[in-house]
């Protein structure tokens, strides 16, 4: 405005013209930016679709040969080329279940401790330690699991478990057999350690976002810490917490190297969780390099497709659960 007053009409029109030009340029910039971001977003869809299509094409010889029986057949025999996926599917689900059974409560407890109870000076060291835990490559967990953790389980923990539950009806089958050290339980425990940091750090971040006023009010009404966590913090943060749990579950389902090292890689379903088993990703990692013959390779790809579908179902269930929660709370 000051400019206008000083320089007169002609300058003003020039000014307007150049301003229009600048605006045009900005508009083009905006459009380019929009297209770029859209392209990036579309790329995700294209990649996802591409993976899906190539998995289906790769798996089709096996699926044509075995049909739906592929999903329930336990045989995995490269010699006679009879393949079935139930043993790896079972192993994948059981190891992830054991992992979540341990990691979810422990992870949430750590997060509650860090946000509600921990003295200030201890918060940073524990927080950093947990983030470092998330940064350890899975092969390290595998080697540590095989060389340190499995012998420890074999010598101390598993004989104790077998002895403890030897006469209890159902638990005796669950903890039966010779203590190999490696097996389904060991894989589940290693996975629990691996997914713990995801659950903890995400829960901690969302717990931190709870408005202090809500918590202070609850404390003011005489609530205990447990009651504050149970009735204020958790309901307020449930979306974030479930997100963290799902992220952890996703990692547990797909984890390959660490599991391959400690699960025992046997294509069998055993009632005992001390017995060796296998998972989908471990089977693929183990056998893909030396898989000769179209049906063998195709069966391995079909396993990959099944893992893809399992992950998809888990995510969909999580979404659905969240939606229902939202609606009920209103």
């Amino acid at each position: 405005m000051v400019d206008l007053a000083l320089h007169g009409q002609s300058v003003v029109t020039g000014e307007i013209r150049s301003r229009a030009k600048i605006l045009d340029r900005l508009r083009i910039g905006d459009a380019v930016f929009r297209q770029l971001t859209r392209a990036a977003a579309v790329m995700v869809l294209v990649i996802l679709g591409g993976v899906m299509i190539s998995l289906v094409i790769g798996a089709s010889p096996a699926l044509r040969e075995f049909g739906l029986g592929f999903l329930v057949e336990e045989t995995w025999n490269p010699v006679t080329e009879r393949f079935g996926a139930i043993a790896p599917i079972y192993g994948t689900i059981v190891t992830s279940f054991i992992a979540m059974l341990i990691a979810v409560p422990v992870g949430l407890m750590i997060a509650v401790f860090l946000t509600e109870l921990c003295p200030m000076w201890l918060r940073r060291p524990i927080g950093i330690a947990i983030e470092l835990l998330a940064g350890i490559p899975s092969i390290i967990y595998g080697i540590w699991g095989l060389f340190v953790f499995a012998p420890f389980l074999q010598q101390y923990v598993q004989p104790a478990l077998i002895g403890l539950f030897g006469n209890v009806p159902i638990l005796s089958t669950l903890f039966a057999g010779p203590p190999y050290g490696i097996g389904v339980l060991t894989a589940g425990l290693i996975l629990a350690i691996m997914v713990l940091p995801f659950i903890t750090s995400i829960s901690r971040d969302v717990f931190d976002a709870v408005p202090p006023m809500l918590k202070e009010s609850a404390y003011g009404l005489g609530c205990t810490t447990w009651e504050v966590v149970r009735y204020v913090v958790l309901p307020y943060t449930r979306v974030g917490v479930i997100g963290g749990v799902m992220l952890g579950l996703g990692r547990a389902l797909g984890e390959t190297m660490a599991v391959t090292f400690v699960i025992g890689n046997a294509h069998r379903i055993s009632a005992s969780i001390l017995a060796p088993g296998t998972t989908i990703s471990a089977t693929i990692a183990n056998e893909f390099t030396e898989a000769v013959g179209d049906l063998y390779t195709s069966s391995l790809i079909a396993l990959g497709l099944i893992l893809f579908v399992i992950t998809f179902i888990v995510l969909a269930c999580a979404r659905y659960m969240l939606m229902r929660l939202e609606r009920r709370i209103g």
């Binding site: 010699v79 095989l146 046997a266 060796p276």
Partner: peptide
């Protein structure tokens, strides 16, 4: 075959995996 359906036992990855499991068990 290069891999077979074993009726028993535990599977270990690579020669080093078998060597280690035998040494430990």
């Amino acid at each position: 075959n290069t891999s077979v359906q074993w009726p028993a036992g535990i599977g270990a990855k690579g020669n080093e995996g078998v060597a280690n499991n035998v040494a430990n068990t």
